[in-house]
Design a protein around this nucleic acid. Structure first.
Lengths: 235, 235
DNA sequence: GCGCGGTGGTGCGGTAGCGCACAGACAAGC
DNA sequence: GCTTGTCTGTGCGCTACCGCACCACCGCGC
């Protein structure tokens, strides 16, 4: 993957654009930091920018009527945050929360829409990503219904590791519990089971994946299904 | 809402188009029957047509890696079946199953994409629907995690009643169990509780909603949230 | 009349996850 | 050193739902 504009290939979605479109697009963006725990959008917020993470990653959370949040999708440098803008709407329907600090390319909503009009390749790439995201949402809906905490935790760790591009990252049980929509002790129980099986290790929020293949086997099939969905959208 | 082309307003999504676009679009469609239990798409299938239900309604199901299906969205005459086509892809990622017999307007995929190019209003309307659908998927993901069968059943009955435009419709406990991803006896238990509370009545698959307001109170907030999502997308 | 398939209801033991409460372990700051 | 806050682990009773099995009822066809 050639890097004709700085950071162009650091977001894999933008890397799918033909060089000319990509260079033009990236030049129109500004580089911003994604700071840990920062909220990029709340339900009902007007979204000012679309973000293409280059490092770091962002959780998309549904906020239930009683205010309890749950993660429904995870966005790293393979995707973008701000799908509503690509669909002609301004208001976010969920919460977007920075999970892993890093950086992103961002562009104002109005400008982004002009770019979408101007570049069929951009439009096509963004649409494919939306398609993949819809698939991931549907997968997650089923996963939440059928799979036990230990499997879902394993899936989450793998997805996060992929997006962090690292076998280690930082997240507490408390936070994980929020993501998975379970109690903290549920995470503690599942995580210590995974640790006992020597698949992961952790202390005070520092998590390390020790046996990736084993963890994949411990995760529900949704992890592989997610990969397949992205693959089919962009193959 | 005026009916300048036959069936134009029978699909509320198409009814959002300016008259000229709508008439043109509807003339390019063919009218087809949606026959009960017919599968419009399986995961991985090439989608030949996009469908705009005019009567009848269609379940979108995620098929889990072990083959077990679960409903993730419900499409009536407020929507369309074939989102992937609108996003430049041909392969369905889930299963589309006719739940309520009726009819639809349909158009071939290639032609539909040409129409999307030609009519910004069509593109905008379809995009808004996709946005609403994403919201519904996220809501369902959370609902599946947090809410008990009785609440989810009530939500499903209300959503279905809305799409059937009727307080009565036909569906067995067995089938409902598949939609909700629970055992048949789980549905039996929840349904008889709702019946005891005089919110619904049923015999051998014939379901009637007797107290709509009561049923709304018995449903989880996801039902109202769904309505709000659609409303915000199209207000 | 009889059998049979489709539908709904019940019972029973098992388990995953819940709410709540409390205890230990480590880190950082004073 | 001591305190305070954060993080992780354990115990307990409870509930929703599970898998499995069996039964009752109804309508239809032979």
């Amino acid at each position: 993957m050639d890097r004709t504009a700085p950071g162009a290939a650091a977001n894999r979605l933008l890397a799918h654009l033909p060089r000319r479109d990509r260079d033009h697009f990236v030049r129109g963006c500004e580089r911003v930091d994604l700071e840990f725990n920062k909220i990029l959008a709340e339900p009902g917020d007007t979204m000012r920018h679309i973000h293409f993470p280059t490092g770091g990653f962002v959780s998309l959370l549904a906020v239930m009527p009683d205010g309890v949040p749950i993660e429904v999708a995870l966005v790293g440098n393979e995707g973008m945050v701000g799908m509503p803008l690509a669909l002609g709407l301004e208001r976010s329907s969920g919460r977007a929360l920075v999970q892993g600090a890093g950086s992103a390319l961002r562009m104002g909503g109005a400008k982004f829409r002009r770019e979408l009009q101007a570049s069929p390749a951009l439009r096509a790439t963004v649409d494919r990503y939306i398609h993949a995201c819809i698939g991931q949402l549907a997968q997650t809906a089923g996963c939440n219904r059928f799979h036990v905490v230990e499997e879902r935790l394993a899936r989450w760790l793998l997805m996060t590791s992929d997006r962090a591009h690292s076998a280690t990252f930082h997240i507490t049980h408390e936070f994980l519990a929020m993501m998975l929509g379970v109690r903290r002790v549920g995470v503690t129980k599942a995580a210590s089971a995974l640790q006992r099986r020597k698949l992961i290790s952790y202390t005070r929020g520092d998590i390390r994946i020790r046996d990736r293949a084993g963890l994949e086997a411990a995760a529900c099939g949704c992890y592989k299904a997610d990969l397949a969905i992205y693959d089919r959208a962009f193959n």
